[in-house]
């Protein structure tokens, strides 16, 4: 007879799993269930009728598009930063290594007002940009900067341990066989980093899609132009339009999970690819 749990002399299985499942249900599963139940009541057609309005579509498209751009920037910059931190030695390296996690520790509202102050036309960077006719704060550029900020550490932190593990002998072997440095980096080093980099990319993307606090200050929040999807949910809730808010919330959940699933599939594929080499 198969049992649910293998017999073990260790005590506390019932207690620990009981606490885990109770807290998980109360804090996470029941609330998400409430949202999904609401969605089931609307049906796909009902959700689409709310989401297909010009304003909702614009907000969703803006959120996912800018989140994707920010995550792509963080993917490239994160790998570069991890490489520099592991392989190069320079004064202040340890300070920078510690500071990379600042976006995890700094509250988003604080980051939001600070970035706005810097990148507004009156701020240090904003006034510099203004001279070349570039407006950053209160445009989509401002949103992009805020999203890059909140997602900055993810890729670096997932890739860094992998770079530390790379055996230099592999790179030497590649060089001995006649590859130049760029070829070695592209064909030997990068493929081993891909799965970890994709993990960081997915985390950074998920974070950017849902980000609210750091964005609303710098965005300008003009409907159809700089209004992100989470803000539209908040606006609907303030109008007591719970159905409208729920429909956009469900759309965000569904698209996020579809994207994360796609990244997961690419990851499995890339992992299989290196293990075959």
């Amino acid at each position: 007879m198969t049992t649910f749990v293998h017999r073990s002399p260790m005590p506390g299985f019932g207690l620990s799993l009981g606490i885990t499942l109770s807290v998980l249900s109360l804090v996470v599963l029941l609330p998400i269930g409430a949202l999904l139940l609401k969605g089931a009541a609307f049906g796909p057609a009902g959700i689409w009728s709310v989401v297909s309005t010009e304003r909702s579509l614009a907000a969703l498209f803006l959120s996912f598009r800018l989140a994707l751009f920010a995550a792509l920037f963080n993917l490239v910059f994160g790998v570069l930063l991890a490489w520099v931190l592991v392989r190069y030695d320079f004064p202040g390296r340890r300070l920078i290594d510690a500071a990379v996690d600042l976006p995890f520790a700094l509250p988003t509202a604080v980051a939001g007002i600070a970035l706005t102050t810097l990148y507004a036309p009156t701020g240090i960077f904003g006034s510099l940009a203004k001279e070349v006719g570039w407006k950053i704060a209160y445009t989509q550029w401002g949103i992009l900067i805020a999203l890059i900020f909140v997602g900055l550490p993810f890729v670096t932190r997932t890739v860094q341990p992998v770079i530390e593990e790379i055996e230099r002998e592999v790179e030497e072997a590649s060089a001995t066989l006649g590859a130049n440095r760029a070829y070695t980096l592209r064909r030997v080093v990068l493929p081993t980093l891909t799965p970890a980099a994709l993990t960081g990319f997915a985390l950074s993307l998920a974070r950017a899609v849902g980000e609210y606090g750091s964005v609303i200050f710098i965005a300008g929040n003009i409907p159809l132009k700089t209004e992100i999807a989470p803000l539209l949910i908040v606006i609907r809730l303030e109008e007591f339009d719970y159905d409208g808010a729920a429909a956009i919330g469900i759309a965000m959940l569904v698209i996020s999970f579809a994207m994360l699933l796609a990244i997961n599939i690419i990851q499995v594929w890339s992992r299989r690819r290196i293990s075959h080499v």
Partner: peptide, 16 residues
């Protein structure tokens, strides 16, 4: 919770 927007999390609480 890492892949759910905090705003959506708040929305879920309000709905429940």
């Amino acid at each position: 919770p890492f892949s759910v927007s905090p705003v959506v999390a708040g929305l879920c609480m309000v709905l429940l």
